[in-house]
Amino acid sequence: MTERVPVLRIGDILLVSIQVDLEDQTVLDLQEDLAEQIVARAARGVVIDITAVEIVDSFVGRMLATIASISRLLDAETVVVGMRPAVAITLVELGLSLGGVRTALDLEKGLALLRRSATGAELP
């Protein structure tokens, strides 16, 4: 049994803070959990905090894009926050630009971004 990443709820936003090393199974479990939770709790936004993630591979990169696509289908917007410079460089070198994923520097800015888009304000 691998560790599961907890999915927390703040209002109508789901917060996923990844604190463990991402194994392929963990990632698949997370994808499943998140899809269920979005539907169960009628979430409008998903924040994935990867501040603690130091190592990524192409699988994790694709996972982020997949989660974003799934969430969008379920009418929730995904924001990836707290990406480290080294991780960003790695993803670029891997050729993953995470097209559909929105990003923010930290959790606070990510939440602000979701709140702005929920109120329908003009996005920066």
Partner: peptide
């Protein structure tokens, strides 16, 4: 281009 994309990934 790579630098710009990396910055974008970080949310800037």
């Amino acid at each position: 281009l790579k630098t710009v994309v990396a910055a974008r990934l970080m949310g800037a």
